[in-house]
């Protein structure tokens, strides 16, 4: 019994220590002086985490928008309120689905790749040798990735929303015959730029920071063996998914709580 409590305590201390390390890590790597070289490294990572994630995010957005319209239509038509389809699709995408689903896809596509890449650099002593050459790997390797993730996820989220709303239009208007004017009209009436679109983007900024942070930290902090890399990659996906879903609840409560 005592042993178990001890173990719990030790686990707690370990957790706290890891959090502290992750915090220091974030602090050290995010304060980089922007330079021409840094700009180039950032661009390269934008390509890696942003452009290469575009396809999966857009295709998922299209299908989710189409499914939303299809499901929403069958429910709304019972109340004779199928004109509200545009509003429903747009609000659920902008407020919830686009930030959350993009972040989850991003964690799976880009986050795990970041962890594995940095982990491999650590395992092959590239990070150590960089340090010995006198270059801080936090600035050279971690910072560009962190910033690229932070910038690209919100852009991906916007893309997700746009494609999703278009998918809803395809199914709702082109296929199920909702009046075109009421699809867009109802949407414009109910969507507020700051409260809905703005808050959605704030959400995705928070998710971007958390997911990228978890991914690069897991890569930097892992045990440099093949097994360590595979474990850290799994941890990245699991932790960032949980963090995204948990934070989403908190943020939703803060943003839309009193509107309810």
């Amino acid at each position: 019994m005592i042993g178990r409590i001890q173990q719990l305590g030790r686990y707690g201390c370990d957790l706290l220590e890891a959090l502290g390390r992750a915090g220091i890590f974030l602090g050290l790597s995010s304060v980089g002086v922007p330079s021409r070289e840094g700009w180039h490294l950032w661009l390269r990572q934008m390509h890696f985490v942003g452009v290469l994630s575009l396809a999966i995010v857009l295709v998922s957005g299209l299908f989710i928008g189409m499914v939303l319209a299809l499901q929403g239509y069958t429910i709304l038509v019972d109340f004779g309120a199928e004109q509200a389809l545009g509003q429903m699709v747009a609000l659920s995408l902008l407020r919830e689905l686009a930030p959350v689903v993009s972040a989850l896809l991003f964690a799976g596509r880009a986050g795990s790749a970041l962890t594995a890449e940095i982990g491999l650099m650590k395992a092959t002593e590239q990070l150590s040798s960089m340090e010995m050459i006198g270059v801080d790997p936090l600035r050279r390797v971690v910072a560009p990735r962190l910033w690229a993730g932070f910038v690209s996820l919100p852009l991906l989220t916007v893309g997700f929303s746009v494609v999703g709303i278009w998918g809803g239009y395809l199914v709702g208007v082109e296929w199920l015959g909702v009046f075109n004017g009421s699809y867009w009209g109802n949407m414009q009436e109910s969507v507020d730029f700051i409260a809905d679109i703005g808050n959605g983007i704030v959400k995705s900024l928070v998710f971007a920071l958390v997911v990228t942070w978890i991914a690069v930290f897991q890569g930097y902090d892992l045990v440099p063996t093949a097994e360590g890399i595979s474990r850290a990659t799994t941890r990245t996906v699991v932790y960032s998914s949980l963090a995204v879903l948990g934070l989403d609840f908190v943020l939703t409560a803060l943003m839309f709580g009193e509107l309810g």
Binding site: L94, L155, L156, S161, V162, I165, Q188, V191, F193, I197
Partner: peptide, 14 residues
């Protein structure tokens, strides 16, 4: 991304 944001602003939120 920026074009998407403008689209959301004009077409979706009116």
């Amino acid at each position: 991304g920026i074009a998407g944001l403008i689209f959301l602003g004009l077409r979706v939120s009116g």
